[in-house]
Structure formats: structure tokens, C-alpha cells
């Protein structure tokens, strides 16, 4: 969704989610190509289409909200970035390099007893990598949350599923 980049606008939106009792899985916010307009991407778990519709309508009522798009069922590009700090010693270090390669992840920091893996992709991919790295001992994870928009060309919409992304 796109919003006017005004003081308090994030507060307005998250406040609305609290007021209406919706749980936010993740939020990302950043500038768009137009000055003064920001894009926010929310991932929200909802029970049914009616709730999704209600959230969309409530968001649309906000004066500073310009456009809301429920893109759950559309062809989208969705990406998240994660930094994962893994405990390592000299014996497993190389093993980890090999392990993360298929994920097109990279090591962005190395110290004597840990290294930091950076990965981008859809949340499922990030989950999968985190699971793989768990046995080595994960010290810290930082995730950005999903940011997304629709693809240039739309295939036929797939069936409704949760979570829904706006």
C-alpha cells in the first residue's frame, strides 16, 4: 500500500490494526519513486476473506492512505532479507559455506567463533535456511519482513490463501 509520508502515518496504520484487533506478522516501510510517498507492505494473518476485505476498507478510510492492494492472490515479487549469526569453529566453517550456496546467501561477516549469513528471498526460503543452520547454533537473527509488489504480467489469480499481503 502507498501512503503520504507524513509524521505519524505509521502510527496511524499500526494503531488501526491494534484498534481492530488484527495481528501484524511483519511490516516494511520505505520511500517510493515519488517524493513524499512511501510504500508499506504488511503481512497479516486472517481467518477469512471477509476480514481481509474489512482491513483493506479500514485502511482505505485513512486520509493519508493513497492506495491499498491486497496482493495475496496475485502474482507478486516478495522478498525479505535476513541476517543470521551462526556459531562456528574452524571445523564447520567450510561446511556452512557449502550449505548456504544453493540459497544464494553470502557470508558478510566472520569472526573467530561466529559468522553472519545474509540471505534474501521469499519468507519460506529464509525459514528453510534458518532451519538448516539451527543445528550449528544460531546466536542471532534479524529479519526485515516482507516487502512486495505485483509482477508486471499477471497470471490468472490463484485461490485465496492466508496470510494476506497488502
Amino acid at each position: 500500500m502507498t501512503v503520504n509520508n507524513r509524521p505519524g502515518v505509521l502510527n496511524r496504520i499500526t494503531g488501526l490494526f491494534t484498534k481492530r484487533h488484527y495481528n501484524i506478522e511483519s511490516i516494511t516501510v520505505g520511500h517510493t519513486e515519488i517524493e513524499g510517498i512511501s510504500r508499506m507492505t504488511f503481512v497479516v494473518n486472517v481467518e477469512d476473506e471477509r476480514t481481509a476485505e474489512q482491513i483493506t476498507k479500514q485502511l482505505n478510510k485513512q486520509i493519508d492512505v493513497l492506495k491499498v492492494n491486497d496482493i495475496t492472490d496475485q502474482a507478486i515479487v516478495a522478498r525479505e532479507l535476513a541476517l543470521i549469526k551462526v556459531a562456528v569453529n574452524s571445523t564447520v566453517r567450510q561446511e556452512i559455506y557449502t550449505l548456504i550456496e544453493p540459497f544464494r546467501a553470502s557470508v558478510v561477516d566472520v569472526s573467530r567463533d561466529s559468522l553472519v549469513v545474509q540471505v534474501t528471498g521469499e519468507p519460506e526460503k529464509i525459514e528453510a535456511l534458518i532451519d538448516l543452520l539451527k543445528p550449528y547454533g544460531i546466536k542471532e537473527v534479524a529479519r526485515t519482513g516482507t516487502t512486495a509488489f505485483t509482477r508486471g504480467a499477471q497470471k490468472n489469480a490463484v485461490s485465496y490463501k492466508t496470510p494476506f499481503i497488502i
Partner: peptide, 16 residues
């Protein structure tokens, strides 16, 4: 006041 009244106003402003 802006924070307190956000959910109970149709819209609000603070003059900057």
C-alpha cells in the same frame, strides 16, 4: 494529544 486521539478522530494534524 495526536497519539492519544488518533484512533478517535477521523483525521488529525499537528502544525509544524
Amino acid at each position: 494529544v495526536l497519539g492519544i486521539t488518533m484512533p478517535i478522530t477521523k483525521h488529525s494534524y499537528q502544525v509544524r
